[in-house]
Design a protein around this nucleic acid. Structure first.
Length: 299
RNA sequence: GGGUCUAUAGCCAAGUGGCUAAGGCAAGUGACUGCAACUCACUGAUGCGUUGGUUCAAAUCCGACUAGGCCCU
């Protein structure tokens, strides 16, 4: 049986470290599932693995796009599935690693992204008008009146496919999957996140951000991740450096919190409490679990 | 030691005798199939420093106490 292994969890728990150790043991190759690490030039703020950390383990879907380009879950699904097949063909184990839940889910499950033409027929409508339109098409959808982005998406979807997006739900899994979640108590995680921001600064976060700032192109790729937009405000003298860094910490904590909500409710995750003082124990625990699920990977 | 001002949720605060104590921030919870590190929603004081009193009715008025700020000594 050919498994696909997934490592998910909040930002800052040690997914990267575990993924490399697992890849070494299981003859694996890593597929990045982090929406911001797809892009080139976004390294420190996105906590991207360094060449040294990789330890010669093949990594895929890192640095594949320029910051001026757009990339969506639809692109990722296509790319990731291709990579999974390639890795399997080599007789290796695909290990999906990242914190972007939607990307992981869309890859693993039978999400259908059919061809669409881009339309912006709805930009001038008020939220109420959008909402009424949506309700008229499908009275059962529960997109909130204020969630303009989702309302427009619904209408665009309907325009293209003439069905309600709600009917797109699926629980059909395309791969034999083991989903491993890394976790720790909230307090420890938050401390790690705060500390990591300090390390990022030492590693040159401000320089990286300033380089992007000077380009003066505020693309989606730059403005989405946590770390740049906050520092841009500092560069524009709107807030102090201290405030910017605190904002980065806070946004990271909130992000981690949201990731928990997502993973807990959207995927069937088996959680492992990380042992930070002896990470080997965590690795062993996870390996043991994988082994119990599939005895092909003997230790 | 004397005078004076203040005390409402983790923080900032509105409220100046009468519906169930505004709001913001922080925090927590949740939704989420084409921007997902996105977008959006929900949640908080049975109580107004403590304690007596006035009143049909007190966060609101009066007294004492406690704590803090400022001024004087």
């Amino acid at each position: 049986m050919e498994k696909v292994i997934v490592i998910c969890g909040p930002t800052g728990v040690g997914k990267t470290k575990l993924s490399i150790e697992l890849a070494k043991k299981l003859n694996g190759e890593i597929i990045n599932c982090d929406s911001t690490q797809i892009y080139k030039d976004l390294n420190i703020a996105t906590a991207k693995v360094t060449k040294e950390e990789m330890e010669n383990i093949p990594h895929h879907l890192l640095d594949i796009k320029d910051i001026s380009e757009d990339y969506t879950v639809c692109d990722f699904q296509k790319d990731a599935r291709l990579k999974i097949e390639e890795i399997k063909k080599r007789g290796h184990v695909p290990i999906l690693v990242g914190g972007t839940g939607l990307y992981i889910k869309a890859t693993l499950f039978d999400y259908q992204f059919k061809k669409e033409e881009k339309v912006n027929l709805y930009d001038n409508l008020s939220n109420q008008e959008l909402y009424d339109k949506v309700k008229k098409i499908d009275s059962k959808v529960d997109i909130h009146l204020n969630n303009r982005k989702r309302l427009i998406r619904f209408l665009n979807y309907y325009h293209n496919h003439h069905t309600s997006i709600r009917e797109n739900k699926t629980d059909k899994l395309l791969y034999d999957t083991i989903i491993i979640g890394l976790t720790t108590d909230r307090k420890t995680l938050y401390e790690r996140i705060d500390k990591r921001v300090g390390i990022m600064v030492e590693d040159g976060l401000l320089e990286e951000a300033f380089k992007l700032y000077k380009k003066n192109i505020k693309t989606k790729a730059i403005m989405t991740p946590i770390g740049y937009k906050e520092l841009f405000l500092y560069f524009e003298h709107k807030i102090t450096k201290e405030e910017a860094l605190n904002k980065i910490k806070q946004n990271s904590r909130r992000y981690a919190k949201k990731q928990y909500t997502w993973f807990n409710h959207q995927l069937d995750v088996t959680w492992f409490d990380v042992n930070f003082t002896d990470f080997k124990k965590t690795i062993d625990e996870v390996l043991k679990y994988i082994n119990s699920k599939d005895d092909k990977y003997l230790l």
